[in-house]
Design a protein around this nucleic acid. Sequence first.
DNA 1: CTAAAACCTGACGTCGACGTGAGGTGCAAG
DNA 2: CTTGCACCTCACGTCGACGTCAGGTTTTAG
Lengths: 122, 122
Amino acid sequence: MRIGEVARQAGVSVRALRYYEEQDLLPSERSAGGQRRYAASAVERVRLIQQLFAAGLPSRSVREVLPCVYSGTVAPGLVNHLEAEHARISERITDLQAARDRLDAVIANTRNPPAQCRHPRD
Amino acid sequence: MRIGEVARQAGVSVRALRYYEEQDLLPSERSAGGQRRYAASAVERVRLIQQLFAAGLPSRSVREVLPCVYSGTVAPGLVNHLEAEHARISERITDLQAARDRLDAVIANTRNPPAQCRHPRD
DNA sequence: CTAAAACCTGACGTCGACGTGAGGTGCAAG
DNA sequence: CTTGCACCTCACGTCGACGTCAGGTTTTAG
């Protein structure tokens, strides 16, 4: 599989895939002419990378976590890190929920404005 | 209240507060000598700004939303935007939960490694 | 064999929310 | 009055995950 096809199937840019390789997140074989060739499994791997990025992990952490995901085991000493990330994500989720509730309140007021919410001048 | 005090109470840097003013998120009075003076309510406002930033809103959106939060009403046409942000945040939350589940799985495997998870060589 | 897609390697640009000096001023205490 | 901390305004630096342009090569379709 060539890079463009992986990009399409995974829904990311070609540039991103090259960047992942540069960061040692996504290895590739090379053709005789030097072009990257990927196994079909690369698509899934890219999706995973994206998911971890979306969780706010920096590429360095992703690099550490990836082999663990694939081996099902964890390098000793990394567990603390993983649990820290887990906590970070959980905290982030509650933050987001709080912010969303704020927006909810504003939206709700719009639909059904409470009496004391007449704004002074506008 | 001076800027350093607001920063301390809100848990942000002085630089951040100046930045907020620059972005028209946090107005300030000035003393005769040109120093910023804030009402006590500024602390709460800063916390709100932080919350919205944490939700991933760019400063431009925060600028739009802030008056709505304080007036309890919404500028017409902004509701769509708010609902879009709401959806974005919800989506982000599910993404985070998925990523967290991934980490959970890895951590769980560590504590109690399943049989077929012997990694080849390591 | 020849175009034209798709790919390659640098390498600089981006964007946002500040960090970080540099160099100068306000203000409260003694 | 002066020490000294807090504050001021530029203005450039940062960091991460790519975007993007330049200039050249490989692969594939016909």
